[in-house]
Write a protein that binds this DNA or RNA. Structure first.
Lengths: 354, 354
DNA sequence: CTGTTAGCGCTTTCAA
DNA sequence: TTGAAAGCGCTAACAG
């Protein structure tokens, strides 16, 4: 069988329009089905055919049309990630982990960041519907997280909202309560007796849970809580307020590292020594934590790992058709205490013997 | 005209399969063409029709199939972003800026991060081909950047490789040379006379250009260059090496902030005072820079703005069919000197009078 | 092992 | 203003 009709398209590799699977089939003298098979590594194909196809692909610089493929397979091989307005290290680590996992499964990541409020988050979610096989939604706002799962419709969703999940939806979250308890227990173990807490933003789920954890771990003392908003500046203000108390605390647990840093600087400026006069613990273990002087004791969360898990989880959901095993609905990541100078024991040297 | 055949599909909103444009048309008693028109805000449509369609969409929770749309329009409304292994703040700021711009144009962002070498970068690029209308490629490797543009084929590409573009390809880059010159001039202006440079990773374009800038700005002195790799640890090592010199420098320009931080810590440990004995300048203005004691003088780049410009640029290219205006092929972003304590003048107090 | 062919869901002329 | 119908490029079921 000769070439039926060596269409004019042949040889016009440099033409304006992209080659299609049909062009490849024609050039390789095989059917489009065979081309498809080779490209999808399916079944058994003669080595000869395979080579012919690959050569043609090469020559024509053929790139499959993803839309068309998605149309026939009803998959997009894409995962959507919806993020709130995240700061530096957290953001990049998270994406790094997610990207790693996604790539390992041949998936792509489509991200939408900087969503402040619930409305924005939902809008982003809506605009992603249909482009992705599943989504990972990070939202510190209680309401948003659950609404998100609704808006998503049939698209599987994994929540990473930092709170324990009451609705039984698939989610991954940090053990904020446990972390806070660990922080307070560490302070108590190192001899502190009057521990204050600088809490995170009002209405933020993680802030809430950390504050609860703090309060629940106290012994022989009432909670001393100052409002912050996770910013360094708010930590500075809060610390200043604490120094003004008639009975000064001898330790501070800040709901995140940036506020702890702010507090540290405030203490330095006020001539209050850390850790001698007052100990400080943060949360997150951002890079600055180790660089501060005194180096900051904090709770480390493996963010990249969390991102990786999120993706694995989602892919699992998508495969099993969204029917999550209720037992493992909410996966918890435990933070690790990293003890540094800022909580060195008040020691036996008679400091703050209280 | 009555309902021709109220197909069984009607009312089965909760069925397993997603609604198609046909379902909507049927329910709204109009043609699919009209539905399409309403959804794309095109032409003129009777208000009645429009409402009927919107109602149907609502009822059926209809979400257009992106793949199908892409198949007929041959657009994806998606921009690909290929990133090297970026650290914290830079990464998130960049994505923030890009996302903002993309959203403003109704585009989505698909990212692929953590690509160390050229091969990985190209692989990522290849896997994105066909899924995107254009790509933004960040790569510090000279070779990769240009290869990328080739591999991309007809897909428009904007390069952000940190080097001046010799090939006339559309690109956006930081004025690394100018920044380095600014740094050195600032040191000279504040009375330093023996300025050393801790350079960035071998083979990294930005490292190269900053080192050149440094050398070119020196007056009455030969270059003193120590190799680093952009990591804090390498900065520490380099600084230690500098202290071992018989003729110690009285200032150090590090190719990035992390190395400057490492150097600062090394000096502290060695009992060398900054800025009294030695001044330090970094590059990037990462958040830590302002938090160090002494706070680090550095060159600030508006990363988010750079990301935004990249996207705007790409969208422009895609519209005009990739024919870039050669005059504006390479857009330069100038860094801004932020003077802090680490370069406070050696003053008239007789310190390091040389 | 390979080819034929029927859709996948949407946009877009072309007519009416 | 609206509808009918022809693809867009690919996959997968079915025949051979």
């Amino acid at each position: 069988m000769d070439i039926a009709a060596p269409s004019a398209a042949n040889g016009r590799v440099l033409a304006a329009k992209a080659a299609t699977i049909r062009d490849v089939a024609e050039r390789a003298q095989v059917s489009v089905a065979s081309v498809s098979r080779v490209l999808n590594g399916s079944d058994a194909i003669t080595e000869t055919t395979r080579q012919r196809v690959l050569d043609a692909v090469e020559h024509l610089r053929y790139v499959p049309h993803v839309g068309a493929r998605s149309l026939s397979t009803s998959r997009t091989d894409t995962i959507g990630v919806i993020l709130p307005d995240l700061f530096g290290e957290f953001f990049s680590e998270l994406i790094r982990g997610m990207d790693l996992a996604a790539r390992a499964h041949g998936k792509h990541l489509i991200v939408s960041s900087s969503h402040g409020d619930t409305e924005e988050t939902l809008a982003a979610l809506r605009s992603m519907r249909g482009r992705v096989d599943g989504m990972i939604v990070l939202s510190p706002h209680v309401r948003a997280a659950n609404l998100a799962a609704d808006v998503a419709g049939r698209t599987p969703v994994v929540l990473m909202n930092g709170g324990v999940d009451e609705t039984g939806r698939p989610s991954i979250s940090i053990d904020n309560h446990g972390g806070a308890v660990t922080a307070v227990e560490h302070l108590i173990a190192t001899g502190r007796r009057r521990i204050a807490h600088i809490r995170g933003a009002q209405g933020n789920l993680e802030a809430e849970v950390r504050a609860e954890g703090y309060a629940s771990a106290l012994v022989d003392q009432d909670p001393i809580i100052v409002q912050g908003d996770f910013s360094q500046a708010s930590g500075h203000r809060a610390a200043t307020a604490l120094l003004a108390l008639t009975e000064r605390p001898d330790a501070v647990f800040a709901a995140n590292d940036m506020m702890a840093v702010g507090a540290l600087l405030a203490f330095q400026e006020a001539g209050v020594r850390c850790p001698e006069d007052i100990a400080v613990v943060g949360f997150d273990d951002v890079p600055i934590a180790a660089l501060m002087r005194p180096a900051l004791t904090t709770l480390r969360v493996n963010i990249a790992e969390m991102g990786r898990r999120g993706v694995e989880r989602l892919i699992g959901l998508a495969r099993t058709g969204s029917g999550a095993d209720p037992d493992t609905a909410c996966e918890i990541v435990r933070p690790l205490l990293v003890a540094r100078q800022s909580t060195a024991a008040a020691s036996t040297a008679g400091l703050n013997p209280d």
